[in-house]
Write a protein that binds this DNA or RNA. Structure first.
Length: 253
DNA sequence: ACCTATGTTGATAC
DNA sequence: GGTATCAACATAGG
């Protein structure tokens, strides 16, 4: 599921339900999810502490810990979510990383596909500014200029952080831009307009609870039609991801 | 059974 | 170095 809206929802959940609860045990035994740490390493760093603040940028979130402890970084990957005080997953293996609290409760990174991450003291230096907060100047500088298709640029987390496949298709559909168009073709004014649409789409999807709530989403299937003009949507692979767009309305120039 | 698909990201190759 | 492709993972569906 997770793009920026899901990560923000997860962050808010941690903030409201997990802060201040003493950690008495950590299951960090999945060394793939917790790479490059070894088993017990995160546990040693966190047991006896509590989470004290919840942050997010793009799809990444991290938490401060008490007593000058390390940052705990979590990423939901392609199918993860945060479960707090819920019953264990139908398949217990899906809880890839867990914190147990002194009060008996539990926080789990629940992820069928195991592409999520749990790391302490992460390197965030290659993460761009949050896509919902990026300034016009930053957006022009970081998105423009590249010869790569605009869609791939929007999804590059080191350029701006938070836009994934579904949001990118929704943004470009709302902005009526061809996803294949090179970013370097965009004028400063076009980049400003694209930023406004980006922020609006993200705000709306956060408010509505997910990246799947866009108007285009239910039409993103083979043979689907543009919800504005009824034209059959084009489908291709752009930036390595399956892309749907309206070949009539989303045209350069 | 086999092939494709899937909301991500990184390592690798050109 | 920028850019594109593939692999990592697990599950679902045709």
């Amino acid at each position: 599921m997770p793009e920026l809206p899901e990560a923000e929802r997860a962050r808010a959940l941690v903030e409201s339900k997990a802060l201040g609860r003493e950690i008495v045990a950590v299951d960090d035994s999945d060394t793939y999810v917790s790479r490059p740490h070894s088993p017990g390493q995160i546990a040693d760093a966190l047991v006896g502490r509590s989470l004290t603040a919840a942050h997010r940028r793009g799809k990444s979130m991290w938490f401060e810990t008490s007593g000058d402890g390390p940052l705990l970084f979590l990423h939901l990957g392609m199918a993860g979510r945060i479960a707090i005080d819920e019953e264990p997953a139908p398949n217990p293996k899906w809880d890839r990383f867990t914190l147990e609290f002194a009060d008996g409760g539990r926080l789990a990174l629940r992820d069928r596909r195991r592409l999520g991450r749990a790391v302490i003291d992460p390197d965030l230096s290659r993460l761009g500014p949050d896509a919902a907060e990026v300034s016009a100047k930053e957006f022009r500088e970081r998105i423009g200029g590249s010869a790569t298709p605009i869609k791939a640029r929007l999804m590059d987390q080191s350029a701006i952080a938070g836009v994934g496949n579904l949001l990118a298709d929704e943004i470009l559909w709302q902005a009526r831009q061809d996803p294949r168009r090179p970013a370097s073709d965009f004028s400063p004014e076009e980049l400003d307009a694209l930023r406004r649409v980006t922020r609006k789409v993200i705000r709306d999807s956060v408010r509505q609870g997910g990246a799947h709530t866009g108007r285009l989403n239910s039409h993103r299937v083979r043979g689907g039609h543009c919800p504005r003009c009824g034209t059959e949507l084009a489908r291709d692979r752009i930036g390595g991801r399956t892309t749907y767009w309206c070949p009539k309305e989303q045209v350069a120039g």
